[in-house]
Design a protein around this nucleic acid. Sequence first.
DNA 1: AAAGACATCAAGAAAATATCAAGATCAGCG
DNA 2: CGCTGATCTTGATATTTTCTTGATGTCTTT
Lengths: 227, 227
Amino acid sequence: MNDGPRVLVIDDEVQIRRFLRISLESNGYEVHEVATGLEGISRAAQLRPDLIILDMGLPDIDGLEVLRRLREWTTTPTIILSVRDADIDKVAALDAGADDYLTKPFSLEELMARMRAAQRHFRPLPHSHLFKAGNVEVDLSRRYVTRDGEPVKLTPTEYALLRLLIQHAGRVMTHKQILREVWGPEYVEETHYLRVYFAALRQKLEEDPSLPKLILTEPGVGYRLVA
Amino acid sequence: MNDGPRVLVIDDEVQIRRFLRISLESNGYEVHEVATGLEGISRAAQLRPDLIILDMGLPDIDGLEVLRRLREWTTTPTIILSVRDADIDKVAALDAGADDYLTKPFSLEELMARMRAAQRHFRPLPHSHLFKAGNVEVDLSRRYVTRDGEPVKLTPTEYALLRLLIQHAGRVMTHKQILREVWGPEYVEETHYLRVYFAALRQKLEEDPSLPKLILTEPGVGYRLVA
DNA sequence: AAAGACATCAAGAAAATATCAAGATCAGCG
DNA sequence: CGCTGATCTTGATATTTTCTTGATGTCTTT
């Protein structure tokens, strides 16, 4: 399993690591494990996990200290495992930035539910990816195109074409590249499509479609979108 | 005290409410309390608390149902209190969108630490429980829809569809996204459902259903609700 | 001036969407 | 238990949009 969310387990007990590896991997997680706090910190930096499971009783440095050091640079959701059930320990861990605190022994079901809950908090805000050139604006995250502030309607193919150009803005894309990306490898000879669809795009986006300033033709080579 | 974070306590036991009010107010929280689930939902909409503490055993509707109804329109951090310690209850609550789950009796210290942890997660989303566009208004907290001030009756599926669009107002939702969210992952191919139900929604909400101004079709892609 | 590459326009084909209505299912109720 | 009304599902058909294709015109280079 190396497709699901990446989990970093920091625990010195082999049995716990083994148990978590088997259980979580069979539930679609990609599990990485280390036995010490220092390893944990460096592994977290390198791995950029989606979730950290941190045992409080580590051989080298205190779990609380590991958590503090992690929180200096990352907000990755972190769930604490501990044998200690006292309030004061829970309070200390949560206030140091833990997202949740489970007392050993814990049930796998509860751990996984709390993992899902912790992960929900981490959803990165839907930053809208904006492209702007001249009087044309494209919001790739919303699939929304405007010209002079007015919404522009594009067909699926037109939009796919425009998006490809934006992703390579400023650079020339050859006929073959474009055809392969938008229509598929079996269409690389259909250069006529390009003429038809670029004409349509210019019609919808250019001030004067016969004197394009945004979508430029590179004769004999391909097309280019100004950056 | 009416300056700190606003907390809404939904619990039918007077002693618990009293205890929480005194304890939390003396720690700088602004505490509001209700005794039933339905009150809780409407109070949450009106008050916009920073945090909700929800008891699972309520006299009118099940706590889990209250949580689900809250999660239809708000992501306010919500901590569950319950007498039940079984995994299955915890898992159900956390998967329904709870941020944390405490078993009674609990310690005030731990509760407050978990409250602080839960609040850290809160990223206020630009969601309101009221949606308005054109002559249509939707109150998500009451599941109440009006057109020109007149109540509109929607079937459960129609409402689920509308709610999804509202939660993503202004951006295109693809056919698959909609089908997965409203009908479930096994329905992602049933694009015909979309036609039928969008027709019904337009019939009920649009001025002229054949010239929709609210629910727009993006051919080949999906649908979009105007923002 | 001719050839090759590109642009434009338009019409038929294909795909996607809208509409209408009948059968199936389900929940509440006498 | 069967009835009733509401909702969901399914199918048939109409309408709209998009894709594909061909014909024709223009520009540039040699």
